[in-house]
Design a protein around this nucleic acid. Structure first.
Lengths: 114, 114
DNA sequence: TCCTATACTTACAAAAAGTTTAGTATATAA
DNA sequence: TTATATACTAAACTTTTTGTAAGTATAGGA
């Protein structure tokens, strides 16, 4: 990415390149709200996401230290995902994004005094 | 996008699909900090962005009501970009993203008492 | 007359992201 | 023996996004 050379002065670019892809923010948000989630639960909640997409993004988030993956050696398999400490530092942003979305999906009608 | 059908309950997904693309957040941030910017100034600051990319993203941001475009009918042309009122509602998120990036680009070393 | 400046647009090419379908592993239950 | 459950992975393909290179318009200056 050669980040420092070109964007050393642009921290926001760093943030969004770390959490790129429309699913990552949603994944982080789900994990923030639910604390711990198994793979299929996450997958259900994010329909219509593809397995490949979900597992890739989870892997990247894990590699970036934002998500923790806990694997239990059972059959059938069991894997739990949760936010790391570092991932939790994003929760204020997640909250604000969610609130912004809420206000813009259902714009509050202007108050009129008929 | 058929947003409502699938994501009516996920406001954060709405937010990030509205501001998708790694450049949009940076563009918004630049406009927030500089108030008003002409096209080439923005382009310089965002190197290595391509004209096509920048002008497309600006157009989308304008269509989404987040950026205002003021065109002066002069030769050579002059166009100024700035945030709309609605775009300004994003500034708290922009600030937090930027701060998060700052902390993670240059992680503050642990304080030790040698 | 040709060059410069500004803010783009267009056509094409390349790269990245996402989708679809099928398959893996293995203990337990029917 | 076959099906079930879970958490994926692999290959082939399509779509979306981004980049490259060139071109447009027009007034004023060299």
């Amino acid at each position: 990415m050669d980040f420092d050379a070109k964007f050393g002065n642009c921290p926001i670019y760093y943030t969004i390149s770390k959490i790129e892809g429309k699913w990552k923010w949603v994944i982080l948000y789900k994990l923030y709200k639910c604390k711990v989630m198994r793979y299929n639960r996450l997958w259900d909640d994010l329909q219509p996401i593809a397995h490949r997409t979900l597992s890739k993004q989870l892997k990247e988030l894990e590699a970036d230290g934002l998500v923790h993956r806990e694997q239990y050696n059972e059959v059938p398999p069991k894997v739990e995902y949760s936010l790391t400490k570092d991932g939790e530092t994003l929760t204020p942003i997640l909250d604000m994004m969610s609130q912004w979305g809420e206000r813009h999906i259902n714009p509050r009608p202007e108050v009129s005094n008929d």
